[in-house]
Amino acid sequence: MAADEQMSRTEEKAVFQRPHALLPVVTNYCPGCTHGIVERLVAEVIDELDVEGRTIGIAPVGCAVTSYDFFGCDMIEAAHGRAPAVATGVKRSLPDHVVFAYQGDGDLASIGMAETVHAATRGENITIIFINNAIYGMTGGQMAPTSLPNQVTQTSPYGRDLDTAGYPIRVCELLSTLDGVAYLERVCVDGPKAVRAAKKAIKRAFQNQVDGVGYSLVEVVSTCPTNWKMTPQEAFAWMRENMLPYYPLGVYRDVQADGFANAAEAAFARAQDCPMASGKAGR
């Protein structure tokens, strides 16, 4: 009631409201889960670029599976790991539309690694938002391709054993070698400053698609308070202490910063010494 009285006396403007591209639906995410922050940033970017009406999102399998109910744009639910292939099919059918996939670490870097690498190397002009929280959340906390060495999970109860389970995958570093890639950045959302930086990166990744710059991926180092068995606050602290040294934040590829208009120009420059690739050889 106090608020109503205030409103009657003074004028107010909303400085923060739910973005249009994020439907007013209560998510299935646990308290403090960063999925909610990242999905809101994606929706804010869709609003700011004014592309909701021509955007198609691809939902993964994992905790974000029901994100097709959260985003206001048209949505497609993909099989586990196949989002980049589905996104490819959509983008090739509707090249003037904006197509993004939202994927977790198991989806993108384990079962879907082939689709991830090949969509990237084909230079599909799509946007990938990659949530890396080093664990399988939805199935109850199993070891992920990005689980850290010695990290205890349900399926690495004595800690991730490098002799038997091998090493985690650093996705941005791996994809940075591919000619088809235009932009890769790793961010996190553990505080207001980080959230602003993450949004800037996500906006770049969408703007690149609109401008035809090429394949763009933003990796968000995230938390899973429930399966890490921590409070959201403890989870951020653990993430800062253990994940960020293993997964350093930063830009891993940016063809525009390197002076090229798009991924294709950068790839062409890299291939100048190859007569076949540079078009200097006969067929």
């Binding site: 292939a85 490819t88 689709e115």
Partner: peptide
């Protein structure tokens, strides 16, 4: 579009995407 996918799994999922987008594929 003729697209040689990385696998049959990717190819069928590209078909899934194209079909979801409303084209004959």
């Amino acid at each position: 579009t003729y697209l040689q996918a990385e696998s049959e799994i990717a190819a069928i999922n590209m078909l899934y995407g194209a079909s979801a987008a409303g084209v004959r594929a």
